[in-house]
């Protein structure tokens, strides 16, 4: 279960299945991607997905950031969960890449999370969160 969720819809009860099972099992609506699995394999099936859980076996393993953006860029609007070695200081980056729920191995301090998310008002580059890069603010 996600410890932190930035969505208004009901959390899904169905457990996430592996990518292999998902691709062979037509009724699953939740899938778990390991960090070395290709997020683009899910693109043909986005319309039946309600939850994608992306694994962070180590916080240093940053492949999940690309996986998340690829799914959002392909139009995926369901829940995108970061699971594993997810630390409070990564939350801003993860949110910007499109994650909207978090299941960290170690609990996060909600006050520190809120503070982190509020800290940077401006960003330099476009990502999956829709925040306008500063060049857009500069030039309207």
């Amino acid at each position: 279960m996600a410890e932190l969720r930035f969505r208004n819809d009901e959390a899904l009860e169905q457990p996430a299945v592996t990518l292999d099972s998902f691709l062979t099992q037509s009724n699953a609506t939740a899938v778990r991607l390991e960090s070395d699995e290709d997020a683009r394999a899910l693109i043909p099936h986005l319309d039946r997905l309600a939850l994608v859980e992306i694994a962070f076996p180590k916080f240093r393993d940053g492949r999940g950031y690309s996986s998340a953006r690829i799914l959002r860029e392909a139009g995926y609007t369901g829940e995108l969960r970061a699971q594993g070695d997810v630390l409070v200081d990564q939350i801003v980056y993860l949110r910007r890449c499109g994650f909207d729920s978090f299941a960290p191995d170690a609990p996060l301090n909600p006050a520190v999370v809120a503070e982190s998310l509020a800290r940077f008002e401006h960003v330099y580059q476009g990502a999956a969160d829709g925040a306008a890069p500063v060049w857009k603010r500069r030039h309207g």
Partner: peptide, 14 residues
């Protein structure tokens, strides 16, 4: 410099 500063996807590269 601006593009790479706090780039959300590329802050935990290999």
């Amino acid at each position: 410099r601006q593009w790479s500063t706090f780039h959300p996807e590329f802050s935990y590269l290999p």
